[in-house]
Write a protein that binds this DNA or RNA. Structure first.
Length: 435
RNA sequence: GGAGUGUUGUCCGAGCGGCUGAAGGAGCAUGAUUGGAAAUCAUGUAUACGGGUAACAACCUGUAUCGAGGGUUCAAAUCCCUCACACUCCGCCA
């Protein structure tokens, strides 16, 4: 959530910034007008409340002295009614203001490439060269099916499209990848967390998924009493439980930055992406992801974003997977982010780079929504900044390994870094078919 | 799932419908004392949102906040309702 004060005091600047993210300036005018009305009503209400408190004190005194206070009580009854009306107005105005405020995206950083969509993203750097083959490389979904380590048919029977079974060496590979990620992240100073996979509405709002993106997620409805929904949602990313771990907290500044990492399932409805990436592991309703989250002091967040990005890159480097780093344009970056670097891994069969990690500095946007604060050396309480990045998407990593490490005979060489995690297995060969 | 108890500031803990932003401790900070420290004494020790003076900081003032939300009342930490969470006992269960 943006700071209404910042908008109020720098209206033109705010309009300009948010215009690059597709927000119409009139919306901010409306917001500021509501805010002005709200504050006006507050002044009136607060003056009346001050009067009421004053008179109430006198009534109390009179009662103690056994004097009559009937007139004052009668007057205050009217004042009370007025206050009630005004407070109702204030509530309505606050609600209107929140409605807009909760749906405005974060201010983009000055360094962000400006543009409405991904075509304005800027490549920052490349690591290694796209893997070369002297034959036509297979797509990972074919490799997975032919090796009998990934089974989409069974998953669509048992669950639905965009679900998958991992089998044998495939399951082992998935497990190897995330254990490797967790170990590496832990070595880099991240504390491992195992978070819950269902979270409440306050949490979804705290990290910015709600109220705007309710269609993108799966929410649990308890059938026996539809009147009282439990309001638990399957997490679309571990970012939600990791950041909300600190919701409402005042952290001792000595303990910042806090770095945490977690493996979790990620559930996404993928509403609106019908027809895109229908094959393979790229776009699933359920996948596993290792996430990294940082809670930092505001003055450190830009440096921490670079560190976070490098931590994610380090994983790809150790797996020897070619990738590039892309700075997202103002129009392409996520709702909560001020600046995002995407890591895109080379996918030979598609002859292109595909997103495998997204590292964002959310500045104080989530911290304000979730009220995550810290006490600095002077004892003052301030909002923190939060950052998050995938380290990394596990399914997509498996896909990248299959494609980049494939051999002409259809087997897949295990990346050196993963061999210990694969119990010494160096090559993935076909699994037994059961039918 | 059933029955009961509880949730107060950084922590512990008191609290009769008005004099309670909240007793009393502890902790922390500053000052005094000391050659220095301990002990002792004194003072201070919330956050949010308004308004004003002023504007890298700050000060004055109002309002709100005692798990959350609603209600009763001139007035609610205190009474009523709903919910969340914690603990205890019973039942069930990986």
């Amino acid at each position: 959530m943006l700071d209404i004060k910042v908008i109020r005091e720098n209206l033109d600047w705010a309009k300009e910034k948010l215009a690059t993210r597709g927000i119409k300036p009139e919306q901010l005018d409306e917001l500021v007008a509501i805010d002005a009305k709200r504050r006006e009503a507050m002044v009136q209400s607060e003056n009346l409340k001050a009067e009421r408190n004053e008179v109430s004190k006198k009534i109390a005194e009179a009662k103690r002295n056994k004097e009559d206070a009937a007139d004052a009580i009668k007057n205050m009854r009217e004042v009370g009614a007025k206050i009630k009306d005004l407070d109702k107005d204030i509530d309505e105005l606050t609600e209107k203001q929140e409605y807009i405020l909760l749906r405005l995206p974060n201010f983009p950083a000055d360094s962000d490439p400006i543009g409405p969509d991904e075509s304005y993203n800027e490549e920052v750097r490349r690591w290694s060269e796209p893997t070369k083959f002297d034959y036509a490389p297979k797509a990972h979904w074919d490799l997975g099916t032919d090796l009998n380590i990934l089974d989409w048919d069974a998953a669509s029977k048992v669950s639905a499209a965009r679900f998958v079974y991992y089998k044998g060496a495939g399951a082992l590979l998935e497990r190897a990848v995330y254990n490797f990620f967790l170990d590496e992240n832990t070595k880099e100073g991240y504390t491992e967390i195992i978070p819950p996979s269902l979270v409440n509405n306050d949490s979804m709002q705290g990290t910015g998924q709600f109220p705007k993106f309710t269609e993108d997620v799966y929410t649990i409805v308890e059938n026996d009493d539809p009147e009282v929904p439990r309001n638990l949602t399957l997490i679309p990313t571990a970012e939600v439980p990791l950041v909300n771990y600190f919701r409402g907290d005042i952290i001792d500044g000595k303990n910042l930055p806090i770095n945490v990492t977690a493996l979790s399932p990620a559930f996404r409805s993928e509403a609106g992406s019908a027809g895109r990436d229908t094959r393979g592991l790229i776009r699933m309703h359920e996948f596993r992801k290792v996430e990294m989250v940082k809670v930092v002091k505001p003055e450190d967040s830009w440096e921490e974003l670079e560190k976070l990005t490098h931590n994610a890159e380090h994983l790809l480097q150790k797996l020897n997977l070619p990738y590039r780093v892309v700075a997202l344009s103002t129009g392409d970056a996520s709702f909560t982010s001020a600046k995002t670097y995407d890591l895109e891994v080379w996918m030979p069969a598609q002859d292109t780079y595909r997103e495998i990690s997204s590292c964002s500095n959310c500045t104080d946007f989530q911290a304000r929504r979730a009220q995550i604060r810290y006490r600095d050396e002077d004892g003052k309480v301030k909002l923190t900044h939060t950052l998050n990045g995938s380290g990394l998407a596990v399914g997509r990593t498996v896909a990248a390994i299959l494609e980049n490490y494939q051999n002409e005979n259809g087997t897949v060489t295990v990346p050196e870094a993963l061999v210990p995690y694969m119990h010494g297995m160096t090559k993935i060969t076909p699994e037994v078919k059961w039918h």
